[in-house]
């Protein structure tokens, strides 16, 4: 999870920065997770990778601020997707597969406060689109949590 989640984000950004410097109001949006800031039992490695993404996002925002590249992160949680519910077609999307003896009392909250259960990926896509657009032109070096209030 460290390589696919964290190292890959670094590698892609490193290779793309020269082209971003030639872009029009360039913006980078990285995928973190609520696991970066809130306890998610049985997901320590994933949480570490997502925390690293948030830290890297902050550092890059400062480093390239004078070149006007914006770096932000989204932190989804309680989102139904191939990553979380095995609905994906990729072999990598096998779902989180919590241990059979998982202690659910260790989870502070399991359900979002809003709505009727998990949201779909479109709940995240709209925020990503905003961050990449002129509407997000004054946002950098931070993350936006999208979890329906699961972790407020």
């Amino acid at each position: 999870m460290i390589a696919v989640n964290l190292t890959s984000t670094f590698l892609v950004i490193r290779e793309t920065v020269p082209a971003l410097l030639q872009g029009d109001a360039p913006a980078v949006i990285n995928f973190s997770s609520t696991s970066a800031s809130f306890a998610h039992p049985y997901m320590a490695a994933c949480a570490a990778s997502k925390g690293g993404i948030q830290s890297m996002t902050h550092a890059l925002a400062a480093e390239y601020s004078k070149q006007s590249i914006r770096f932000t992160a989204v932190a989804p949680g309680s989102i139904s997707s191939g990553l979380t519910d095995a609905s994906g077609t990729s072999a990598q999307n096998a779902g989180p597969g919590l241990p059979q003896d998982a202690d659910f009392s260790l989870f502070a909250r399991l359900a979002p406060a809003l709505g009727h259960g998990f949201a779909g990926p479109d709940a995240v896509a709209g925020v990503v689109a905003m961050l990449g657009s002129a509407d997000g032109s004054f946002i950098t070096g931070t993350e936006i949590r999208i979890d329906g209030g699961t972790h407020y």
């Binding site: 989640n5 892609v12 950004i13 360039p26």
Partner: peptide
């Protein structure tokens, strides 16, 4: 693309759960 990049989204990721 033939030029600069305006927006980059890093969305690749995997998740596995287990006792540490």
């Amino acid at each position: 693309l033939g030029g600069g990049v305006d927006v980059l989204v890093n969305a690749a990721g995997i998740l596995r759960s287990s006792h540490t």
